[in-house]
Amino acid sequence: MKNSEAKNGKGDMSKDVEGHAFKKPQADLSEQTDKALSGLDRRDFLNVAAVGIAGMGVCGAAIPFIAQMNPSKDVSEQSKTEVDISTIQPGQTVKVVWRDQPVFIRHLTEQEITEANAVALSDLRDPETLEQRTKAGKTNWLVTMAVCTHLGCIPQGSNSSEPRGEYGGYICSCHGSAFDTAGRIRRGPAPTNLVVPPYRFISPSVISIG
């Protein structure tokens, strides 16, 4: 108990090293620890293996906690969206929901198709023709995700009361990306054209997205 007096006198541990009153146990302890550690070569196979296997265990245990943040099975397997397009007039755009996100279905007018075809591919940031972005023989039906490829806002232009921008398609009011009548990026920060989701015509008047 000699140490306690000394300790009361000096709170700082680093100074304890010089305190003569407890030099002996001090030495004993470091000696003891050193002895224990010197026997254990750092490269000792067993210790490396033990640390390694513990590390593996921790990494393995992390897998479920990372995996659980993926979309759950009932979300990722959500069924297709079927849309009756027979009531959509030329020039009209409707928004439907697929995978929790809106999709534009646009019935292009003759003029819009002509406008889209008149653009030279070399003028485009992401060169694609209207033909490539629509189904064969159905070039008047433009189906795109209503999600700006810049940072995910919903572009305006689907409703007649909304601005369509100088290229007549859509304009994203968040950061000013303008899309043409084929949904292609023409101006602003968006890197690519509006994405065309997987879809097919299951009858002349019904499309199925997904």
Partner: peptide, 13 residues
């Protein structure tokens, strides 16, 4: 129950 069935490793957690 949805955690148990549909979330990845939800049953384990």
């Amino acid at each position: 129950e949805a955690i148990m069935r549909y979330v990845g490793f939800g049953w384990l957690i």
